[in-house]
Write a protein that binds this DNA or RNA. Structure first.
Lengths: 221, 221
DNA sequence: ATTTAATTCAAGCGTTCGCTTGAATCACCC
DNA sequence: GGGTGATTCAAGCGAACGCTTGAATTAAAT
């Protein structure tokens, strides 16, 4: 069957995650996957199409799961306010749990975070894979934080996304730089830490004229 | 004088910021900078050394400024607790204000954020450019948040750093995706927004057993 | 003016890149 | 079991890559 396709996708996923998309030549994927040198172009057409296929294979189910969780939270909230942590949890947990335990999953988590840092590929897959999740995430967040002005909410959504991307991508770096102080092996704990941080940032009170006031300049405290 | 060196650094900075380090061939830097094809290797030796030089030129003064601000905050606090927002401000503001107004500054801000996403280059320059800032940042943060366990503090420092890197890097993307709702042109406002988010995330209360409890699983609220 | 070192120049080396080709092989249907 | 489309194979094309070379040019010191 299309065993070759899967071998290519697996090898590409691992190599992209570890070294970055631009840094991996097709020839390394060919070697790692143990397939013929023309197989990639036969099955995918080009490197760009291969990249899209790698992301689609994982983000399709992942984002479906996120939407499912968001729906549950919305249903449970009824007419009331959903919890901010719960909303963040629906975004963070499925991504963090990807391929839990397995090596390929750990690598893909790093690749997932990397996607948000490679604008070229982000734009390519965003419209068909992320638009719906983002829309629902934003809608539920506006219900969870009704007093937050829209621009502040959207700003903070970007910031929360940035922190999530960083944790997803740099788990190895975090463990290393912190000299083992930060344990990245327990996925559920990491989810909790991340959700708490994101929710606290999103929920911060909006100081009046926070946009204009210049704080803590030297000697002004 | 070493006009050529500056032309190379300027051109490399712009191109790296806009397209990524790996995506820019030396020949494009040569063309953009209007220098001879052997000039880069004559002055810098290799592409890697050029990359290091690009980062050093900016991060040297930038991190010196951060340390200066951190020292001021520490002095003002005396024996008391420094403010978390002030500590974040010392990290965020100098980076955000880089080359304020100028085009090259805007580009380098994006490059600065990108550095944290290119582990290969991050490790190369971290030890000599960032170790001291990180040490002082952490020390002041532990005074500002004395009740936070060390591992939680370090974890949240990574997350806060991630959100900062994202905002630095993706200013254009933020303005575009938000359809102009998020105005990235006013640097001081962006600093305030970012500082507030980071400080709130860092200051979030530590739930007992937050690490172990599984929250908001379907139907458990 | 002559020497000497630093810099610039045009040309191109060897390698690796994404991708293509055309023949060989496989899988499957009548 | 012969024919047909899908897949695999070995080989290599043209272009672009980082980097090198050796001569020409500049600038400063004597």
């Amino acid at each position: 069957m299309p065993d070759t396709k899967v071998q290519i996708l697996d090898a590409a996923e691992c190599l992209f995650a570890e070294y970055g998309i631009g840094a991996i030549p097709l020839r390394r994927i060919i070697a790692e996957g143990g397939v013929n040198s023309a197989a990639i172009h036969y099955h995918f057409g080009s490197k760009e199409e291969l990249v899209k296929a790698v992301f689609k294979r994982r983000f399709g189910p992942l984002n479906a799961q996120r939407i499912e969780l968001l729906n549950e939270i919305s249903d449970e909230a009824g007419d009331g306010q959903p919890g901010v942590e719960d909303v963040c949890y629906a975004i963070v947990a499925p991504a963090m749990r990807l391929g839990q335990g397995t090596d390929s999953g750990r690598l893909f988590r790093s690749l997932a975070g990397r996607l948000m840092t490679e604008p070229r590929y982000m734009e390519v897959v965003f419209s068909e894979l992320f638009v719906e999740v983002d829309r629902r995430f934003d809608a539920l967040l506006s219900r969870a934080l009704p007093d937050l002005p829209e621009d502040v909410r959207v700003w903070r959504k970007f910031m929360a996304t940035g922190s999530m991307a960083f944790v997803l991508r740099e788990q190895d770096l975090i463990a290393k730089v912190s000299h083992g102080l930060c344990d990245t092996s327990d996925v559920e704990v990491t989810i909790r830490r991340l959700v708490r941080f994101m929710a606290a940032g999103l929920s911060a009170p909006v100081a009046e004229a926070v946009e204009a006031a210049v704080p803590a300049e030297k000697g002004s405290r």
